[in-house]
Computed example of a mutant assay.
Amino acid sequence: MKAIVQRVTKASVSVDGELVSEIKRGLCIFLGISKDDKIEDVNYMAQKVLSIRLFDDEDEKRWMKSVKDLSLELLCISQFTLYHTWKGNKPDFRQAMPTEDSKKLYQAFLERVKTLHKPELVKDGIFGKVRSVLIENDGPVTVEIVSPLKDTKDKAELEEDEK
């Protein structure tokens, strides 16, 4: 599982010109689900997204507070294109999980984030639709989070720990 996380002053998602969701200050999360992802990846990503410290504290000390610490909003958007490879100049999405299975894990991610945070602060777009996303990036701050089982180095370390 992979997430591109952007710190935003505001963000919104529309489908066919209709506003679906919007947030003020918080995080916009583009979530990619690979064909190998499991519920353990969902749990890891939900916890990580809520705990990363991308915000200043009350004394303006940088990188001290998380979205959860400050009770900020999240806009979550599924994005299978994060799991692409290149076939010449054309993207190939065979590493992405098929739609129906992916939808289940995406919904599980949303539910887990809502359980760990305040449900009313967690918004999302419509799964599987072509969406228009407007983001006012704050900073700009954009980071990538990858479930440890997908990172070759971490996977090797985990396997070594199991021995």
Rank of each mutant, 00 (worst) to 15 (best):
M45P: 09
K38N: 08
L158P: 03
K38Y: 04
K103I: 00
V15L: 10
E18C: 12
S78Q: 01
L116V: 08
I29F: 00
M64Q: 15
E60L: 11
I23W: 10
A11P: 09
D36H: 15
F80P: 01
V15A: 01
W86Q: 13
T152E: 14
D59E: 14
F80H: 09
R25S: 12
G128V: 06
V130M: 10
S102C: 08
G128L: 07
I52M: 05
L75N: 03
K163D: 15
D59K: 14
D138V: 03
R53Y: 11
K68I: 07
S12L: 08
K90R: 13
L54P: 03
L74R: 03
L70T: 02
K103E: 05
A3Y: 05
V113W: 04
C76G: 00
T115W: 00
I145V: 15
D36F: 14
I4C: 03
K2E: 12
L27V: 10
I126P: 00
V146G: 05
N89K: 10
K104L: 09
K155L: 15
T81V: 08
E100G: 01
T152L: 13
R7K: 12
A11G: 11
K103S: 00
E40D: 15
K2R: 15
G125S: 05
K129Y: 02
I23T: 10
H84I: 01
Y106A: 07
K153C: 04
G17M: 08
L27H: 10
F109Y: 15
L149I: 15
E159P: 03
D151F: 06
G26F: 02
S102K: 07
I52H: 01
T85M: 12
D56C: 11
K153W: 15
K123G: 05
S34I: 09
W86T: 12
I145P: 13
C76F: 03
L116K: 00
R53C: 07
P140W: 02
L134Q: 11
V8Y: 03
Q79C: 11
L82T: 07
S21M: 10
F55D: 07
L105M: 12
A108T: 05
A3P: 08
S66P: 02
L31M: 06
K163I: 12
Q47V: 02
K163V: 14
S132Y: 04
Y83T: 07
E18S: 13
V15G: 01
T9H: 11
K38P: 05
G128A: 12
E22L: 11
C76Y: 02
D69H: 13
R62Q: 13
A3M: 12
L121I: 01
G139A: 12
V5E: 00
L72K: 05
K114H: 04
L27G: 02
G128Q: 09
N89T: 13
R53F: 08
T85R: 14
V141W: 03
S102E: 03
A3D: 09
K2P: 06
D124Q: 14
P140I: 01
I23P: 08
L54M: 09
M64P: 05
D92G: 09
L134W: 05
G26E: 01
N43G: 02
V130G: 08
L31S: 10
D101F: 04
G26I: 01
R112E: 10
E120F: 12
W63C: 05
E160F: 14
L105A: 13
T81L: 07
E159A: 15
A11C: 06
V13I: 01
L121S: 06
A96R: 04
K155Q: 15
E120S: 15
Q107T: 01
L70C: 11
V67Y: 08
L110D: 07
E22M: 08
C28P: 09
V130L: 14
